[in-house]
């Protein structure tokens, strides 16, 4: 019921006033119309969390990475050896 899914904001399709915006959000390639009234700060390219057709939050990418850092801080990743630098996505 409280399921909310992250998707990438790809375009703004309607703007009635400064807050009332509608945009297209891509969920793994499937595009849906999403109401953006509650995320006026969202820009094209941002990931937003969508619940019943309404974006309720912009996902903080830096915080997202911390979930993976957390276990490293406890030292559990030490036995896996040093970090491999990941190739940068273009």
């Amino acid at each position: 019921m409280c399921l909310a899914i992250p998707g990438k904001l790809t375009s703004i399709t309607a703007q009635l006033d400064e807050t009332f915006r509608v945009g297209k959000v891509s969920f793994g390639g499937i595009l849906k119309d999403v109401n953006l009234a509650m995320v006026p700060q969202a820009n094209i390219g941002d990931y937003v969390l969508v619940h019943v057709g309404v974006a309720i939050s912009v996902i903080d990418e830096a915080e997202a990475h911390k979930t993976f850092e957390y276990i490293k801080q406890i030292g559990e990743l030490e036995d896996l050896g040093p970090d491999q630098p990941k190739p940068q996505q273009p």
Partner: peptide
């Protein structure tokens, strides 16, 4: 719904 859904319903 819970608080999650309330804004969409209010909107």
């Amino acid at each position: 719904g819970f608080e999650t859904t309330a804004p969409a319903n209010a909107l």
